[in-house]
Design a binder for these strands. Structure first.
Lengths: 245, 245
DNA sequence: GATGCGCATGTGGTCTGACCACAGGAGGAA
DNA sequence: TTCCTCCTGTGGTCAGACCACATGCGCATC
């Protein structure tokens, strides 16, 4: 009795994934380091290369590694730890699969974004130059709604990035990316794009002004009204994404 | 010239992933539905089964599908859309890979949790029974720190769940899971576990009381002080998880 | 006719081996 | 010394095979 054929209680790809996670936790691997070649990792762990590939694929989608073919220092699987992609992927797919209702994503923005704005206002250090530059770009006349909304989305993410907090930035990016398609699809619901875009621009300026003046309560209230106002006007939360009724 | 050997600009597994995402978005697939068998999906898309498996593996880790062997209605890949696992996985691995510094996770809690508490206090409907039950469980004398902290973590997640918002719940669960190990490791830093646990219990009661009385500002302040106080006392943010210095 | 059991079937899980495209570097030729 | 050309190692993909498993059909039995 030396090795029953019924061995793999733990699935092979999970063995590979947990092995890599353990090496990350131990500090054995860090950003910039290369993962061992797939063939060698498979041999070391006693699993097939295809199982290792499944683990690496997960890490790639989660934004932990970047893979490249060829040879040299830029090739192979390199640990990058860029969370935006992973957060966006999980939120976007959960919205697509109806795990996250659109209304919950919108409500989460209404809870989180004002809190970030108030947090920014309270902080001593904050870099709002990127956000301000985006506001200037949105003042260019004749922008298409899609262009304007792309800048708008980047502005909201830039506010989170101004905090210098990677978790808040990635979360905001995920919240935004997950409903991007639905926001664009709801533009025709607006009674007047010109009026709405002008109002959004003014509100953006007011938000930045409130943050810069250090008035966290005012900044939070303005952001809440800004987000809630737009979603109410474009009627996104009402009946989009509901194919079951 | 009929089919160059240099064809795959888009990687095969991404073709499969985007195909499934498109069917989700179109409402063609939803929670409870079965994905086509891997072999058939591979044949339909013109890719190898291993490539389909990589896509399914990603969906599984992201909490979108559950796979089971065998035959019958419970076998195969079923869409489940349970976001907690995916959010926890991405945050936990990002923390492990130093993409999310511990300090940023803690700060994110300090920003998000008080906002959720205030949101709860403002809402008319909220179900705090689960949270209260956990507080009762934490009053049992003689709990080990690990047991107490497990209940504590569930209490904080239960507060988010009381909002009924899946996005907020999953985000809080992810924030909590990602630093669970570091919280446990920092228990010895506490000057007195008995004093600390007694204080935490009292603060929890105060938070719930503030929420139930509808005082959002008070609830937010109490939650901020509660989280900040514990992290300061256990000195988690200072130098844990930093293997580079 | 009702009942119980065993095997055919279809599913995911894994492994093996092979080939391709690619990028870099070593080594030889000019 | 410089340039060019293969060789090498990497990920990306495919094909085919086998296994474990859970179901459910169909046959034999009562």
């Amino acid at each position: 009795m030396t090795e029953q054929p019924t061995a793999p209680i733990a699935r092979a790809w999970r063995v590979a994934l947990e092995h890599i996670e353990a090496r990350l936790l131990a500090g054995d691997l860090g950003p910039g380091d290369h993962l061992p070649p797939e063939r060698q990792l498979a041999a070391d762990l006693g699993v097939a290369r295809s199982s290792v590939r499944e683990a690496v694929r997960v890490l790639e989608v989660l934004g932990l590694v970047r893979t490249a073919t060829g040879s040299g220092p830029n090739a192979g699987a390199v640990i990058v730890a860029s969370p935006e992609g992973g957060m966006s992927a999980v939120m976007r797919l959960q919205v697509a699969a109806h795990g996250f209702p659109i209304a919950d994503v919108v409500e989460a923005r209404l809870v989180v974004e004002p809190a970030i704005a108030a947090h920014l206002a309270r902080r001593a250090e904050r870099d709002l130059r990127q956000a301000s530059a985006l506001l200037d770009a949105m003042d260019v006349p004749g922008l298409e709604p899609a262009e304007f909304l792309a800048l708008d989305a980047r502005f909201h993410v830039a506010l989170a990035e101004a905090s210098g907090n990677t978790v808040l930035s990635a979360t905001m990016a995920g919240l935004r990316d997950s409903i991007e398609g639905y926001v664009l699809a709801a533009v025709p619901n607006l009674p007047s794009w010109l009026a709405t875009s002008a109002r959004l621009r003014a509100e953006h300026r007011g938000i930045v002004r409130a943050i810069e003046s250090g008035d966290g309560t005012d900044a939070a209230q303005r952001l809440h009204a800004h987000v809630a106002g737009y979603y109410a006007e474009s009627r996104i939360t009402s009946d989009t994404n509901d194919t079951t009724r």
